[in-house]
């Protein structure tokens, strides 16, 4: 927590990517990374409200939770879990390539990350479409034969996975921006903070899914 080193090498002060209010590139990088972590804490709390509702209602209505969970497509959920893990690996490799200044590796891995992220969303689209068909979307079209508490499950399912998917979309947009910067050769071993913070965000979105998958898809499988 000590004050950043302000007496850095003189040549660093003239780096074209150094913003005027920072002393040197190291301070700028540290601020960006701390900033992303603080932002991710807000994200944890944001999803936390949903997990709180999940925890309470699952305790109140365990049977509705099992019945609702068994309507979800475990295979598609599992495939998506693996797809996201692969995308996290390619993201980590892209950040590493940026750190060591390997531009082509970085571009290749960014493209792969975008592709896997998109596959996730496409799979999610088919899952959602099936829910509409089966009258599992809460509201007036919800299957009246089901017990009302299942509406709570599916409301939370759609809020949790929907907000997660929205984060994926934002992540893919960010990746395109990073890809464009990488394409224009704007990163170097001295300057890669945007890649690193985008990576942190992407991994966070992956972590949310790591919890959503067992808690939504798998809880009724032993019945």
């Amino acid at each position: 927590m000590s004050a950043p080193n302000v007496h850095a090498d003189a040549h660093q002060e003239h780096h074209p990517k150094l913003q005027h209010h920072f002393h040197n590139m190291a301070q700028q990088l540290e601020a960006s990374i701390l900033g992303m972590w603080v932002f991710l804490v807000t994200e944890v709390m944001f999803f936390g409200g949903l997990f709180m509702a999940y925890l309470l209602y699952r305790n109140m209505y365990p049977d509705a939770w099992l019945a609702g969970s068994n309507e979800l497509n475990e295979v598609l959920g599992g495939i998506n879990t693996l797809v996201l893990i692969v995308s996290s690996l390619t993201m980590a490799l892209a950040v590493r390539a940026a750190q060591v200044g390997h531009r082509m590796w970085q571009i290749a891995n960014l493209i792969l990350t975008i592709i896997f992220g998109s596959i996730f969303l496409i799979v999610k689209y088919f899952e959602y479409a099936a829910k509409f068909e089966h009258h599992l979307v809460p509201g007036s079209s919800f299957d009246p034969a089901r017990e009302p508490a299942q509406q709570l499950f599916f409301s939370l399912y759609f809020m949790m996975t929907g907000i997660h998917a929205l984060h994926m979309v934002v992540g893919i947009v960010l990746l395109f921006i990073i890809l464009r910067m990488a394409w224009k050769n704007q990163f170097s071993a001295d300057y890669f903070a945007p890649v690193e913070v985008t990576g942190l965000y992407w991994h966070f979105v992956d972590i949310v899914w790591i919890f959503l998958f067992p808690l939504l898809y798998l809880i009724g499988k032993h019945h």
């Binding site: 990374i33 701390l34 804490v41 994200e43 944890v44 709390m45 936390g48 990576g199 991994h203 790591i210």
Partner: peptide, 30 residues
Amino acid sequence: VILFFMGVKYNTPLTKVVAASGFVWLIILF
């Protein structure tokens, strides 16, 4: 993911505290 992909294992103590704080506050809420 947090320790290796996100590099917290090799990061400053401050980052570790920040990363943990979100989960601590979740436990308070829950």
